[in-house]
Simulated scan of single mutants.
Amino acid sequence: MKPGILIISHGSRDGAWVRIVEEAVSGLPLCEEIPVAVSFLELVEGRLIQDGINKLEHGGVTDILVIPLFVSSGSTHVDEIEYALGAKAEPERETDLELFTVKARVHYGYPVDDDPDIAVMIWDKLREMSKDPARETILLVGHGSVHDGFRQRWQKGIGSLANRVREVSGVAAADYALLNPDSVRDKVEYWSGKGHDVLVAPLFLSEGYFTKVVIPRKLKGLTYRYSGKTLLPHPLLPHWIGNQVELLLRRVRGEGQAGLEQKK
């Protein structure tokens, strides 16, 4: 077995966005030397998912460890990519994404969801805005989904992550709001009504239209604190990716050993 790592993110026409993802991957702490390809779902010509697959397979990789670099398992992209890679038989929702050409075995990992490293990253981005934790609420704002099943996964993951952020930060409360279905303004008004200072944290990988325009527009006229700082860049993200890789490696090698035992 020769493993390779395929890290998949959404993609952007903004070259700075692409470089931020690449820089996070460049610091990947691995216990052994494994080839790595960074690919994007769309918008980055020559760096799409099929390009990443081809690069790894041309290097002799037999098992591709896929890390979906998305913030929630409630993302429809996470589901359609898993299907298009052949890691699941059918998508949960109709997709235009065509099946990729893959010869290697594919082992699909997990998105961010409520990982403890991510909670630390969020607090690091907010720490300088905190003045009186005993009367503050941190409000995580994520994209969300209007689709049944996906929406519930968004709610479960970001709700659990909010609890982790509260534990790490020591603030009075932590909560979440989604853009789809929209609950952002209601949540800020609710916590402000309880006498809390609200620190709004965008749960996005990098800055863009949603963090710069959509969220501030929804909160116009309200009292809150918002830095607009997203998860990246942050030195802990390579650590998170490294953990996902090690988990997949243990799973793959465990399956391989079990197969050998059955042949005996």
Rank of each mutant, 00 (worst) to 15 (best):
R93F: 14
L205R: 00
L161I: 08
R13L: 13
T137D: 04
S227Q: 10
G242M: 07
V44R: 01
W154G: 04
V36N: 01
V66H: 04
R217L: 07
P68W: 05
V188M: 07
I81L: 12
V112F: 12
L232T: 11
F150V: 14
N163R: 07
S160T: 10
K131E: 14
L219P: 04
K55C: 00
L161T: 00
H10K: 11
D132Q: 13
L247K: 07
N180P: 12
A173M: 03
Q152M: 09
S12V: 09
G195H: 06
E136T: 13
N180R: 15
V146F: 06
Y176W: 10
D197H: 12
R250K: 14
E98K: 14
A89M: 15
A177D: 00
P181E: 07
L85V: 14
A174K: 02
P111T: 09
D79Q: 12
Y190V: 14
G60A: 05
S75Q: 03
G149N: 15
I5A: 01
D175E: 15
G27M: 10
W123T: 08
K187V: 10
L41H: 02
T137W: 00
T62L: 03
R253G: 03
E23S: 05
E136R: 03
E82T: 10
E98C: 11
L43Y: 02
L236P: 04
L97A: 14
W191I: 02
W191F: 15
G60Q: 01
E261K: 00
L43C: 03
D96F: 07
K187L: 13
G109K: 01
R253H: 07
K218R: 15
A84W: 09
K2W: 07
D148P: 05
V78A: 05
E33I: 06
G254A: 05
H143V: 01
K131M: 12
Y224M: 08
L139P: 04
V78E: 04
V214R: 11
R164N: 08
I67L: 13
G221D: 09
E94C: 09
D197C: 10
S73T: 01
N243T: 10
T62H: 05
L85Q: 06
N243H: 11
